[in-house]
């Protein structure tokens, strides 16, 4: 079975730091930025381990503000 590599792009300025994507990620590789904030003062979501993502899009589906774009490519 082929392995998939995924990548997410978070719209940091749109993110409100609600933490729902962090809870939804089955691989536990999302977290809210510790000390960094966006213009509105929210700790935005970011990937902690980019190599592990498989592009399942759970984070993007639960995101109430549609901040997450997901890409997925099969590894050769």
């Amino acid at each position: 079975m082929g392995k998939f590599r995924g990548l997410i792009v978070v719209d940091r300025e749109r993110c409100k730091g609600c933490n729902l994507c962090v809870v939804a990620c089955p691989l536990h590789i999302l977290a809210l930025a510790g000390k960094r904030v966006n213009k509105k003062g929210y700790h935005y979501a970011e990937q902690t381990d980019k190599g592990l993502c498989n592009g399942c899009a759970s984070c993007a589906i639960v995101c109430p503000d549609g901040c997450i774009t997901v890409y997925k490519k099969k590894e050769e």
Binding site: D11, K16, G55, I61, C63, P64, G66, C67, V70, K72
Partner: peptide
């Protein structure tokens, strides 16, 4: 591309509280 915000949902920042089901 697997998933992105639908084009019909525009770029206006939503006034809903963080984590609101409305979004």
């Amino acid at each position: 591309l697997v998933y992105k915000k639908p084009a019909l949902l525009n770029d206006n920042p939503m006034h809903y509280c963080p984590g609101c089901s409305h979004g």
